[in-house]
Write a protein that binds this DNA or RNA. Structure first.
Lengths: 237, 237
DNA sequence: TGCAATGTTACATTTTGATGACACGTACTG
DNA sequence: CAGTACGTGTCATCAAAATGTAACATTGCA
């Protein structure tokens, strides 16, 4: 998504949260924290972190429950989870992996090891999904290089416009309401003025228009659907 | 699309029920209330609300229990639940409530936040049901892209004509009075001149006629039934 | 033919979307 | 550290589309 991946740390001990937070910070990650499964779930719904560090031994044993839930729910299933566990017994490892957790780290661990594992998991998960460029006529979006090209020339646009275009190109031929677009591009439960979406649509269109030298106007791909929202479509309006 | 979503508020404190009820009302939702888990369960089975706001701490059979039951029962599992939780209560007890609810709101909350979360959850749950396109000869309506096509070319029409055609195509071969059409297309409790329906029928017919290049006149599908109303039918008048 | 029902057109009003301007915050630079 | 450039969200304003109604035209049945 954004430059620095956002990591959610879930642990009931403040000391551990802080320690990990500092480690991630120096490694160039952003991080947020939660001390209960409940807080964690709310955070995940709202912020959609790029990865979750989840303590196995949350009071009530709800850490594994949360992991199971996250992997079952389509909305959150793709978010990688690394389990933190104090126990070294094989049972736990097996159980954790059963749930669909991506990796586990046993306490005590070195910050260095943790960061290495995080990077490995992120590389795996982002590499698989996002690497394939999407092309529509001479408009190409390459998530790997985080770049948009029109007729083989780079298009300049802000991060929000990039995410917006990315959302549209991965969800073509369907209308989305402004609310829905806000959910997808800004994150759920972020309150914005509805018109803000319009403004960014305008900016994206402008960027696309300015980019073409051949007279093909790629901004026409982003269609206004009166009374309903916007649509990315190759078909004529 | 559907009229106003119906929200069930489950809380044992009347003051909170009222407060939420008013907030939902101003946000354009309908709401019903229940003060006990039992009432709530009966209501849910009878009314099938679009969403349940559930206080997690209910006397005589906790809210968590109800949530668990609802999510376990196939009949009710698809009804989204938002849990109302008290931030002040002991976190220990909160652990067990990770039972598959869709979101949480912690008391005290602002009406605005509540409404935003309700909308987000509703959007998520209804967005999953994908409407399938309806096709009659070479007239196709695709709700997902919010488009009407005749002979593979887009047909231009206003939102009201779109809703009108959508109603007809999902209710073919039956006459509907102008009153009934008003209820379905404009919504109940909207008063309009009866002639207004005629005008929009006219506009829809015009749009359909103008769209065909093959000489087939799709406006003939919308038939006038003198003295009764209108009918969408593939059979000849 | 006469009359009620329906179709059509024009128009004032309302709603909705596009866009430029601006203020604020942040990161970068000299 | 000041200065600058940039990204972002909001607002005011303009333009365009949609809407509902009334007036008038046409149709079709008794």
């Amino acid at each position: 998504m954004t430059p620095e991946p956002n990591i959610l740390i879930v642990d009931d001990e403040a000391a551990i949260r802080d320690m990990i937070g500092i480690a991630l910070d120096t490694a160039g990650f952003r991080s947020t924290t939660a001390s209960t499964a409940l807080d964690a779930h709310v955070n995940i719904i709202d912020q959609r972190p790029d990865l979750v560090l989840l303590d196995w031994m949350l009071p009530g044993g709800s850490g594994i429950e949360l992991a199971r839930r996250l992997k079952r729910d389509e909305l959150t299933a793709s978010i990688p989870i690394i389990m933190l566990t104090a126990k070294t017994s094989e049972d736990n490892k097996v159980q954790g992996l059963d749930v669909g957790v991506d990796d586990y780290v046993t306490k005590p661990f070195s910050p260095r090891e943790l960061v290495a594992r995080i990077k490995a998991v992120l590389r795996r998960s982002t590499g698989n999904l996002k690497d394939k460029p999407i092309r529509v006529f001479d408009l190409e979006m390459d998530p790997a290089s985080h770049r948009v090209m029109v007729e083989d020339r780079a298009v300049e646009m802000g991060p929000t416009e990039y995410r917006l275009l990315n959302f549209f190109m991965t969800h073509p031929e369907k209308v989305y309401s402004r609310d829905h677009i806000q959910d997808q591009v800004w994150g759920a439960n972020v309150y914005l003025e509805e018109r803000t979406v319009d403004v960014h649509i305008g900016r994206l269109r402008k960027a696309l228009s300015a980019a073409s030298k051949t007279g093909i106007n790629y901004s026409a791909l982003i269609q206004t659907v009166r009374g309903a929202g916007y649509r990315f479509s190759t078909r004529h309006n």
